[in-house]
Computed example of a mutant assay.
Amino acid sequence: MTARVEHLVTSGTFALDGGVWEVDNNVWLLGDDAEVLVVDAAHDADAIAAAVGGRRVTAIVCTHAHNDHVDAAPALARLTGAPVLLHAEDLPLWRMAHPDVEPDGTLTDGQRLTVAGTELSVIHTPGHTPGGICLYAPSLGTVLTGDTLFQGGPGATGRSFSDFPTIIDSIRERLLTLPASTVVRTGHGDSTTVGAEAPHLEEWIDRGH
């Protein structure tokens, strides 16, 4: 059976630098009727487990370690037995959310993950956080960008551990080089495409200064 992408929205809070904000997060499931990979276990482990159903979870991939993207990851790991994977450079942020539990494995640039016969490539895209990654599935024509690239521009870089020039370089060099038709599935809000976002790069740069 061909792998597919499923979508769930969960709600909770994002907390950093002394502020707390209400947020809705996109949780992505890639797989088939037998097995699935979860991208960004946000807020509600039970709701995500319900969406998984009886399928085997091969991994819980964190695009980055802001608390709203990882707060349900340990609980989901306990429910499913799946490993939690995170880029090592985001461990300081992870430990703010989960001081008593570590991820089960690390993600590295160029790493390949496989689910339901579909290969996924890890793309390191620092800027929103030091260890931010995107997950590219060429056979599905999609890239899951977490908070690196949204419809309308790059992720926020006004808080600790973030850097605007770095996120622009990541988007320019790692994401806008993907086929224009590639569907961009984001950490919050609506999806877009690489082709729709590419023309706006100079506008983002002007707006960021």
Results as ranks from 00 to 15, higher is better:
M1Q: 08
T2R: 15
R4E: 13
R4I: 10
V5L: 15
E6N: 04
E6L: 15
H7P: 02
L8F: 02
V9K: 15
T10M: 01
S11N: 14
S11L: 13
G12L: 03
F14N: 03
A15W: 05
L16N: 05
D17E: 12
V27F: 09
V27Y: 07
V27P: 00
L29W: 00
L29F: 01
L29P: 00
G31S: 03
D32F: 08
D33W: 04
A34L: 10
V36P: 05
V36W: 04
L37G: 10
V38N: 04
V39K: 00
D40N: 15
A41P: 00
A42N: 09
H43R: 11
D44M: 07
D44K: 06
A45Q: 09
D46Y: 06
D46P: 00
A47D: 07
A51S: 13
A51G: 10
G53E: 15
G54Q: 09
A59L: 09
A59G: 08
I60L: 11
C62T: 08
C62R: 01
C62Q: 11
C62Y: 00
H64Q: 14
H64I: 07
H66Y: 14
H66R: 12
V70A: 05
D71G: 03
L76P: 01
L76F: 05
L76T: 04
L79E: 00
T80Q: 06
G81T: 06
A82R: 07
A82I: 10
P83I: 12
L85A: 14
L86Q: 01
H87Y: 04
A88H: 05
E89P: 02
D90R: 03
D90T: 02
A97T: 15
H98I: 06
P99F: 05
P99T: 03
V101P: 01
V101A: 09
D104C: 05
G105T: 09
T108F: 08
T108K: 06
D109G: 12
D109P: 04
Q111A: 15
R112W: 07
T114C: 10
V115I: 11
G117D: 07
T118L: 13
E119W: 05
L120V: 15
L120R: 13
H124W: 14
H124D: 11
H124T: 13
A137V: 15
P138R: 07
P138K: 08
S139I: 05
L140Y: 12
T145S: 10
G146A: 09
Q151D: 15
G153N: 04
G153R: 04
P154D: 01
A156L: 10
R159Y: 12
R159E: 11
R159N: 07
S160M: 01
F161M: 12
F164R: 13
P165L: 00
I167C: 02
I167M: 02
I168S: 12
D169K: 09
I171G: 00
L175I: 07
P179S: 01
S181V: 10
V184G: 00
T186W: 04
D190V: 11
T192G: 11
T193S: 14
V194K: 08
G195W: 11
A196C: 05
E202R: 14
E202W: 11
D206C: 08
